[in-house]
């Protein structure tokens, strides 16, 4: 419990002050590194020490984002990528969880499918890109499918491991109370695996971004991945850098949202 308005001893006050100073130092250094890199980058490009055509500059990146915004293109491209990522993330999470449940349910099915999962896990999924495009067409469906392919295996493997690591004594306890397999799944296996599920979400949200951007690299006419490819093709590094920056911000926001949910869950349990 947090204690407030309490007269601490001098030693404890010194400890708290030291802790605050340390935190402040870490934060200042983090900001300093960013400011120095951006500042140096801007100065070097301003005085033409580096070629802005190849390296761009912070101000040019901001201008590009500004012009994308004023032309209405910014949120259009963000929206497309966000939609593909979230759709791929949702499908792979739901489908991955369902497959993991089926594999936990049937030991025989798990043994039968084990070699296929191992092969799919080790295969660079992007190699399947051309096949996916032929099967699902040169549109958003293919991008979402690539996104799902990249993300789903990690969800299946991690969740299956979580389900199987549930303590046997807890299962025995439920069986001794007369629980059937469905009740064991619903009342024990799934709730016990919530922390691992959130860890998987943290990984798969990142993988979904990889999937949607890779998909857009292969086949797309809109989205942040498309802007990056298009910008590099016409040698507009401002566009490439601006899109990458937006991508960084969006991916960080999503990661923070999942981390926040994780904190809430852990707070309740630990």
């Amino acid at each position: 419990m947090r204690r407030k308005n309490i007269n601490y001893s001098k030693e404890h006050s010194r400890f708290l002050a030291r802790n605050r100073r340390k935190k402040f130092f870490v934060l200042s250094m983090q900001i300093c590194i960013l400011v120095v890199i951006l500042g140096l980058w801007e100065i070097l490009s301003y005085f033409n020490v580096i070629n802005t055509l190849i390296f761009s500059s912070p101000s040019r990146i901001l201008n590009t984002i500004g012009s994308l915004y004023s032309s209405g293109e910014l949120f259009y491209h963000i929206g497309i990528t966000l939609y593909e990522t979230l759709l791929g993330f949702a499908i792979s999470t739901a489908l991955g969880l369902l497959i993991a449940i089926l594999l936990w349910w049937s030991e025989t099915l798990r043994k039968i499918l084990d070699p296929y999962i191992v092969v799919l896990n080790s295969l660079p999924k992007i190699a399947l890109g051309p096949i996916v495009i032929i099967w699902f067409g040169a549109g958003m469906q293919s991008i979402v499918v690539i996104c799902v392919l990249i993300t789903i295996i990690i969800t299946i493997i991690s969740m299956l491991n979580a389900f199987r690591s549930c303590e046997q004594d807890k299962i025995l306890l439920m069986k001794s109370m007369g629980a059937n397999k469905f009740q064991i799944l619903l009342k024990l296996i799934l709730p016990a695996s919530v922390p691992q599920f959130i860890s998987v979400l943290k990984i798969s949200i990142g993988m979904s971004w990889v999937g949607s951007i890779m998909g857009e690299y292969l086949i797309s006419s809109a989205g942040l991945g498309y802007l990056i490819v298009y910008g590099s093709q016409i040698f507009r590094l401002d566009l490439v850098m601006a899109s990458t920056l937006i991508l960084c911000i969006l991916a960080s926001i999503m990661y923070l949202i999942v981390s926040f949910i994780e904190k809430l869950v852990n707070k309740k349990r630990s």
Binding site: L172, L173, S176, G178, K187, L188, P191, V194, K268, R269
Partner: peptide
Amino acid sequence: AKNKTGYMFQRDHLFEW
């Protein structure tokens, strides 16, 4: 004889959630 026996283990195995 369903539910006629009750089990208690070395660890309490309470469900934390």
